[in-house]
Design a protein around this nucleic acid. Structure first.
Length: 275
DNA sequence: TTCCAGGTGCATA
DNA sequence: TATGCACATGGA
C-alpha cells in the first residue's frame, strides 16, 4: 500500500488495504467516534481524523509519525491476506473486512481498556472509557487525553464504579498499583509464554484479555483471543468444544504466526452479521 | 422479565 | 487441575 506523509496529514493511496470503518469497528479499539466526514480516533493524548476521498483516505493529525506506526502502515497487508486465503474458512471474512489493519496501541491504555471489556458489550465499553477520559484526562481543547497513571492513582475504587465499570472497579483500582507503562514496556523482550504469564498475574487480566494485550499492544500475531463470538464461531465450523483454553490451542495450532490476523477477520464478520 | 456482552476471581473437590 | 458460581450494568 502506498502512502505519503505530509506536514499535517498522511495520504493513503488506494482502498484495498485500508478502511477506516473496518479498522476502527472491528473491536480492537474503543476510543473513536463517527463524524460527518468520517471518523476520529484517539490514542493517549493524540488524535487523528480520517476522511475518505476518491483515491483513498486522508489521516489528518499533528502527529503523523505516531499514527504511521499506530496504523502499522509499513506492513503489507495484501501479502498477509494472500497467505490467509489458503484457509477456506477465512475467504469470506477477509473479503468482508478487507480494510482491517491491526493497530499498534499503547500498552497501558490497552491494558485498562481490555480489563473493562471483560464480559461487557462494545457500546458500554466505549461509554465507560469516554467517561474515564472526560473525568481524569487532560483537556486537549476538543477532546480529552487518556489519563496519566498519576491521575489513575489519585482516585479510589468508588470512582471507577461511578463511571460505570461495575464489578471491574476493584480490578482497575488494583492494576494501576501493580504495574506501570515502564514495566509493561520492559516485558517486550520476554519470551511470549513468560510475557503472557506476567499479564495473567495482573488483576482483571485472564487468558482472553492477556491475548488482546499481546495482539493489540505488543503486536504478537501468534495469539488467538477467544471470546464469546469466537467461541460461537468455533462451535459453528469445528467440532464443538466448551473449554476455551482448548479452543485457543487448536486455533493457534491451525493459524500459527498468522493467528492474530485470522482472529480479527473472523471476529469482525461474526459480530457484524449479528447486527 | 430474562438474556447477553471481546471473562475473571475465587471457592471447592 | 478442573468445575461452578458470583459479579455491575444497560440494551435487546
Amino acid at each position: 500500500m502506498k502512502y505519503k506523509i505530509c506536514e499535517n496529514y498522511i495520504e493513503i493511496q488506494g482502498k484495498e488495504d485500508f478502511s477506516a470503518k473496518d479498522i476502527l469497528e472491528c473491536g480492537q479499539i474503543f476510543a473513536f467516534n463517527k463524524t460527518e466526514k468520517g471518523y476520529v480516533v484517539y490514542s493517549l493524548d493524540k488524535k487523528a481524523e480520517i476522511e475518505e476521498n476518491e483515491g483513498g483516505f486522508r489521516i489528518i493529525t499533528k502527529d503523523t509519525k505516531y499514527f504511521e506506526n499506530f496504523f502499522d502502515l509499513k506492513t503489507d497487508y495484501s501479502l498477509i491476506k494472500k497467505q490467509l486465503h489458503k484457509f477456506e474458512i477465512l475467504k469470506k471474512p477477509i473479503n468482508f473486512g478487507k480494510g482491517i489493519r491491526i493497530l499498534k496501541q499503547d500498552l497501558f491504555e490497552t491494558l485498562i481498556s481490555f480489563i473493562i471489556s471483560a464480559n461487557n458489550n462494545i457500546k458500554r465499553i466505549q461509554l465507560i472509557l469516554s467517561r474515564l477520559r472526560e473525568k481524569l484526562g487532560e483537556n486537549m481543547g476538543d477532546y480529552f487525553a487518556f489519563p496519566t497513571q498519576e491521575k489513575l492513582l489519585s482516585v479510589d475504587e468508588k470512582f471507577f464504579k461511578d463511571i460505570g465499570a461495575g464489578y471491574r472497579a476493584s480490578y482497575l483500582y488494583k492494576v494501576v498499583r501493580q504495574v506501570d507503562r515502564e514495566k509493561l514496556e520492559s516485558w517486550r523482550n520476554l519470551p511470549s509464554k513468560e510475557l503472557r504469564n506476567n499479564l495473567i498475574a495482573l488483576s482483571g487480566v485472564g487468558p482472553k484479555v492477556a491475548d488482546c494485550i499481546l495482539l493489540f499492544g505488543y503486536g504478537k500475531k501468534d495469539v488467538f483471543p477467544v471470546d464469546t463470538w469466537i467461541h460461537q464461531m468455533y462451535n459453528k465450523f469445528y467440532t464443538p468444544l466448551e473449554n476455551r483454553e482448548k479452543i485457543r490451542e487448536n486455533l493457534v495450532k491451525e493459524f500459527g504466526e498468522l493467528s492474530g490476523y485470522a482472529q480479527q477477520y473472523l471476529f469482525f464478520s461474526m459480530r457484524e452479521k449479528e447486527s
